[in-house]
Computed example of a mutant assay.
Amino acid sequence: MLRTLVIAAHPDEPEIYAGGTAALLARAGHAVKFLTLTNGDAGHHHMERLPLARRRAEEAWQAADALGVTAYDIWDVHDGTLEVSVEARLKVLAEIRGWRADVVIALHGHGPGHPDNRAAGRLVEDAVAFATTRNVETGRPPLPRQPLCLTMTDYAALSFHRGELAVDVGPVLDAKLDACLAHASQFLEYAAWQRGFLDDAPAPGDTVKGRAFVARHWAPFLEATDSHRPALAARYGAEHAARVTHAESFALAPYGRQVDEEELRHLLPLFPA
């Protein structure tokens, strides 16, 4: 059994950016954990921080059930206050070691966008450097080998993200959409309010309309496009790649374990032989 850790800044980001890949790994019998480095308590247009943090934790657990994710941990850090510090780096390092991660999926650590997202990416990058270093102590034993590290795209990284690896998530699309819908405070409320289509949001619990709503408004993180085809063809073959309708895209991080194609396929057993 392989162990994958997806690290993001806010609850709902692992689901929209890597939820399909997580579901595929879980269905294949592997262990996947989601970790967010803030509790998301700023992300609403009328709810106060404490009730919002509680609600978002409940939504996260529902999302984990939809995907088959083994664990979902949320740091008690206020949304909007995540900083790149030695203390936070060591906490991330402890999380990576504690999960005994074979694969770590993280946000990009550089570029524009939400400061928490960039900080989360930087913290993972900096922590992984010490994953095997025994004298950097965290209370968790060092890993025997560096994990394979991937970066997932977010809304601010679309312009520079390198889609070197793409996963066909069509077989688990409904699970991914349901995981997003579990975060009703975000997909049906706050983000819809921010982006000006709150009046179009369906009622919570309307799965058919809800899936269609998320699929329409978050298409860049769901649909396979021409930019995905080369990476899809490299691992699924050109014929399969041409048929893929929904995909998730990842870059091979310059940090962590550098692998050849055989080891990549071993650590991410998602592709046909």
Rank of each mutant, 00 (worst) to 15 (best):
M1S: 14
R3L: 08
R3A: 06
T4K: 05
L5H: 10
I7F: 09
A8P: 05
H10G: 03
H10Y: 06
D12R: 00
E13L: 05
E15P: 12
G19A: 06
T21E: 04
L35F: 11
L35C: 12
T36Y: 07
T36K: 12
L37K: 14
L37F: 14
H46K: 04
H46Q: 12
R49W: 05
P51C: 06
P51F: 06
L52M: 05
R55M: 14
E58S: 13
A63G: 14
A64V: 07
A64L: 06
A66F: 01
A66D: 01
V69C: 04
Y72D: 02
H78T: 12
H78E: 14
H78P: 08
D79I: 05
E83F: 00
V84N: 10
S85H: 06
K91H: 10
A94R: 05
A94W: 01
E95G: 00
E95L: 03
G98F: 00
D102H: 15
D102M: 06
A106R: 10
H108C: 03
G109K: 06
G109V: 10
G111N: 08
P115Q: 10
P115L: 11
D116V: 08
N117V: 00
N117A: 08
G121L: 03
R122S: 11
D126I: 01
A129S: 11
T133E: 10
T133K: 14
G139V: 03
P141H: 03
P142T: 11
P142M: 08
P142W: 08
P142S: 12
T151K: 00
T153R: 15
D154N: 15
S159K: 04
R162T: 13
G163T: 13
L165C: 03
L165K: 07
D168F: 10
D168I: 09
D168R: 02
D174R: 00
K176R: 13
A182E: 07
F187H: 07
Y190F: 14
A192K: 14
R195I: 07
D199Y: 04
A201V: 03
A203S: 11
P204W: 06
T207C: 02
T207Y: 03
K209N: 15
K209R: 15
G210F: 11
P220K: 06
F221L: 10
L222R: 05
A224Q: 08
D226R: 15
D226P: 04
S227F: 11
P230L: 14
L232T: 09
A234M: 05
A234V: 01
A238K: 13
E239Y: 02
H240G: 01
R243I: 00
R243A: 10
H246A: 02
A247F: 03
S249G: 02
S249Y: 00
A253W: 09
Y255V: 12
D260I: 01
E261W: 05
E261D: 15
E262Y: 01
E262M: 02
R265T: 08
P269I: 08
A273S: 15
